[in-house]
Design a protein around this nucleic acid. Sequence first.
DNA 1: CGCATTTTTGATACACGTCAATCTCCGTGG
DNA 2: CCACGGAGATTGACGTGTATCAAAAATGCG
Lengths: 199, 199
Amino acid sequence: MRLFSMVDRSKLINPRDSRQLCAGAPLYAAGSAGLAWRVRHGVVRLDTPSPTGESAFASLAIAGDIVGCETLLFGAYTFSASALTHCELSPWPEGETATAGESLLESLAIAQRRAADVVALRGGQAVDRVVGLIRLLTDHGGKVVLPTRQDIADITNLRFETISRIIKGLERSGVLATVRIEGVHATRAYAVNLEAAVG
Amino acid sequence: MRLFSMVDRSKLINPRDSRQLCAGAPLYAAGSAGLAWRVRHGVVRLDTPSPTGESAFASLAIAGDIVGCETLLFGAYTFSASALTHCELSPWPEGETATAGESLLESLAIAQRRAADVVALRGGQAVDRVVGLIRLLTDHGGKVVLPTRQDIADITNLRFETISRIIKGLERSGVLATVRIEGVHATRAYAVNLEAAVG
DNA sequence: CGCATTTTTGATACACGTCAATCTCCGTGG
DNA sequence: CCACGGAGATTGACGTGTATCAAAAATGCG
């Protein structure tokens, strides 16, 4: 098994199989069965069903990550998944069985990296956590559509009032600026200048 | 590929290959190259090198988890690893190349589950986080050797003084009781009665 | 236009952080 | 065997960053 190279997977994707989700829409529920997915765009939120009945934030999945693979082993999802932002998913595995080992190894490495990112979003000062999350969500053009205050609060382990205050603060200090992106809710779409947040 | 079964891997392990580490001992450093390992006993702490030079807690690996697999893809470790408790590791992969896909899929599922556990340790009331960690560390006989206060603090995102106060409190309320296990530092080995912590 | 939902803002409380002084454990060497 | 020293743990007093509670304002939708 060759280990030091990666697969160009782009030609293997059939666009007809991909699935689009609006922000907030559920993808699957813990305990049910279904497909595993690869996140192609956007961000997925994973939740663990907690003993008390409600569910608690568990992790994030971003472009490139695989979600729900446990259903292939156990026949049921461990977590619930929902779209944090508008996103696009394609079924997994993608037919590259010949290179399955390599692809999986890469996915494992990505999962561990992602886990560390999420852990980092739950430590340090409140502002830094929020900025850290925004950094994760921002596209290369410097634009973000933020999740609801409540979602941000769940991820960073803060309260939505605190998130509101912080985001307003970032706006006032010029780190975030409201923009309108093709009809997207104006209070959630921002242009980002994160370098300013460092100083 | 059969997906709904798991591999009995026990007969594949060569005891001569396994490696023992004392609590606190480093396993590998971020950026260097080496083997990937499966954790057989004990708990490993992973740290990300932070921009400021120091390193920050990133994740935990417990019996069954795989650490350092990114070195097989990139030729360098992403995290630093050290033993949180006395632990035993064996090189990975373990020679079961025939079933590599299945084994990896299982590892990926475990990694995601573990990530959720660690995230949960950084949310909620301070006492609950500490109890949650102790729960993760406790063996089936109800015994734990706790890491240092500082390590617990790093993992739960609290300060070591706070951890000290909480653990003393748990002792006083009968949830933890100091015991002596074959010469192990008495202030770190405990018998646990975690049910008492729920009430 | 009016209603439900989300966001903002204010006032106040408290859990945990911070700083600093001991204390305990345990290895070392006289 | 005991004095010494260093690392980790404990404890106290005090400060502060967020949580909490409550109310108003903004937003989006039918």
